[in-house]
Design a protein around this nucleic acid. Sequence first.
DNA 1: ACTGGATATGTAATGATATTACGTATCGTG
DNA 2: CACGATACGTAATATCATTACATATCCAGT
Lengths: 132, 132
Amino acid sequence: MNAQPDLTRNQSLVLDTLSHADGPLSAYTILDRLRDDGFRAPLQVYRALDKLTELGLVHRLESLNAFVACIQPHSHEAGTVVAFAICETCGQVDEFSDEQVAERLSGWAAGHGFHPHKTTIEIRGTCATCSH
Amino acid sequence: MNAQPDLTRNQSLVLDTLSHADGPLSAYTILDRLRDDGFRAPLQVYRALDKLTELGLVHRLESLNAFVACIQPHSHEAGTVVAFAICETCGQVDEFSDEQVAERLSGWAAGHGFHPHKTTIEIRGTCATCSH
DNA sequence: ACTGGATATGTAATGATATTACGTATCGTG
DNA sequence: CACGATACGTAATATCATTACATATCCAGT
């Protein structure tokens, strides 16, 4: 289902775990879920996550110290800014991107001689469902 | 200099430490700098930071697990969105806010029934000085 | 095929960040 | 001055991430 031709076994296992989860997972949670597949140490998870992040298949949520599978592998073109709405009640995460936000931020950067490498946008709050 | 009338001793010490630092500090770095003032445990720092953050005097940088003094105590009105440009070379942090970015994000939220609680925007990159 | 470099892996130990639990002190207000 | 709210002190523990070192695998160039 999530078979990515050029991923290693470890990377595939981690990506599958994230893809089948219904919310963000911490590295150690991923580790626990992969014990039966031979995972024994955090580094195995972190290394896979590093690669998957680099490939744009996984995002790290900085405010949660957790990881999610990218909804759609829109390769991490420089300048692509993704935002996340994180529900603090149910843990659901909604990924979206907004062209105008990206432009305003890169406009600020250009105006200040700042060269962006990676941009994080995370909105913590309560989702529609949890607000009933 | 940073005398805030209604702050406790611990809170003042932590705020002063952050104000006089030339970049973000981790909680444990703050702890080390306050050993001589009687600080002995992380919790003393974290409690002060919690309060200062609540008062809008300090910001937490999620992508760094570190804290900075707010450039200008613009009390944390709901809806106030602050962004940070973080230089990965020298560690300098630039705080700014952009009305249009705030509007676009709250527009997305409104359109999805999402109720924002706190918004994080952090741009990691290289500052003008470090790009020489 | 053989070699050498780049990449991926296995494992243990350690470092860095943050919270829980529990008890005490201080402050303001009725 | 009794009470609740808030702040503080300390220890233990939980959670997240990296360093160090040894081994294995893949693949291009000869």
